[in-house]
C-alpha cells in the first residue's frame, strides 16, 4: 500500500459509555485520504460523540485511534490541530466579541505573536500577521463573508456563523476537516455554495468527514457514506449502495419510510 492509499484515520474497538449507555461502539473504521466521507444516522446515534473521541475532546473507554499512521488516542485537541486535524461544532462556536477577521486570524497555527514575550515586540510578528490576514481575506471572499469582515462575529446570522466556523477551520491549513452538521440552518442557496466549497477541498489535499441529515446533500458530495445507529456502524458504502440498504432504511428513516409523516400515529 502506498502512502496515498493508506487511510488517514482509523479507529479500532473504540468504545465510549455514558453510565449504562453505549454511546459509541465502533469495531473497525478507516477513512480514505482526500475523499469526502459522510457520517449519517438518526438523532442520538453517537455521531457527535464519535467526533469528540476522534478529535480528543472526549476520552475513549477503550480502543485505538490513529491519524496518519500514528496512534493518537488520548492526545489533546490542540496537539491534533497542530498535526492537521481540525473540527467544527454542531452548536456553532463563533467567538462573538471578536470581529470576523479576528476569528479568522485566530485559526492560523504557529503564530510568533502568540508567545508572550514576542507579543511585546511587534516587529517580530507583524509581517507574519500580514500574511495571515491576506490568507484570511482570501478565504473570507471564498465564503462570501467579506461584508462582515470587521463586524463582531456575534452579529452574524446562524447560517453565517456556520460559514465562519468552517472558514476559520481552514485557516489551520488542515489535512483532515471534520464538520459536524455544516449545513444545518444554512439557507438552500447558501448551502449549495457551501457544498461547492466542500467539494473543492479534496483537490487541495484535504480529507473531509461530515455529519449530515439531508440525504440529498450526502448523495451529491459524498464519496463514501458511513451509517451509525445506537453507537455502532451498521453499514457503509457509496451513497447509492447505502441508499438501497434495507438496514439503513429501517434504522435511519424508521419503519414509516415513504409515508406522509403527518398521517403517522406517533403515539
Amino acid at each position: 500500500m502506498t502512502a496515498a492509499e493508506q487511510p488517514i484515520l482509523t479507529a479500532r474497538g473504540v468504545v465510549k459509555t455514558f453510565g449504562g449507555l453505549r454511546a459509541v461502539d465502533v469495531d473497525q473504521l478507516e477513512i480514505q485520504r482526500n475523499k469526502i466521507t459522510a457520517l449519517i444516522g438518526p438523532n442520538g446515534a453517537g455521531k457527535t460523540t464519535f467526533f469528540n473521541l476522534l478529535t480528543g475532546f472526549d476520552q475513549v473507554d477503550s480502543g485505538e485511534i490513529t491519524f496518519d499512521g500514528a496512534v493518537i488516542t488520548g492526545t489533546a485537541p490542540h496537539r491534533l490541530a497542530a498535526k492537521g486535524m481540525v473540527r467544527t461544532f454542531q452548536l456553532t462556536k463563533a467567538l462573538a466579541k471578536l470581529s470576523t477577521i479576528e476569528n479568522m486570524k485566530l485559526g492560523a497555527l504557529d503564530q510568533r505573536g502568540e508567545k508572550f514575550w514576542a507579543a511585546l515586540l511587534p516587529s517580530s510578528w507583524t509581517k507574519q500577521e500580514q500574511a495571515i490576514e491576506a490568507r484570511a481575506d482570501a478565504i473570507l471572499r471564498r465564503f462570501n463573508l467579506t461584508a462582515m469582515r470587521d463586524e463582531y462575529a456575534g452579529t452574524m446570522s446562524g447560517g453565517q456563523r456556520k460559514l465562519l466556523e468552517m472558514a476559520r477551520a481552514l485557516m489551520t491549513d488542515p489535512r483532515l476537516v471534520m464538520l459536524d452538521e455544516p449545513m444545518a440552518g444554512v439557507n438552500p442557496a447558501l448551502a449549495q455554495s457551501l457544498l461547492e466549497l466542500i467539494k473543492l477541498l479534496p483537490g487541495e489535499g484535504r480529507t473531509v468527514i461530515f455529519v449530515e441529515h439531508n440525504m440529498d446533500v450526502v448523495q451529491e458530495i459524498a464519496d463514501w457514506v458511513i451509517v451509525m445507529a445506537e453507537g455502532r456502524i451498521i453499514a457503509q458504502g457509496t451513497p447509492t449502495e447505502v441508499k438501497s440498504n434495507k438496514a439503513v432504511i429501517d434504522a435511519y428513516l424508521g419503519a414509516h419510510h415513504g409515508e406522509d409523516l403527518s398521517q403517522v400515529d406517533l403515539t
Partner: peptide, 8 residues
C-alpha cells in the same frame, strides 16, 4: 473549546 479546536 473553539480555541482548543484551533490548536491553542
Amino acid at each position: 473549546d473553539a480555541a482548543r479546536a484551533l490548536g491553542k
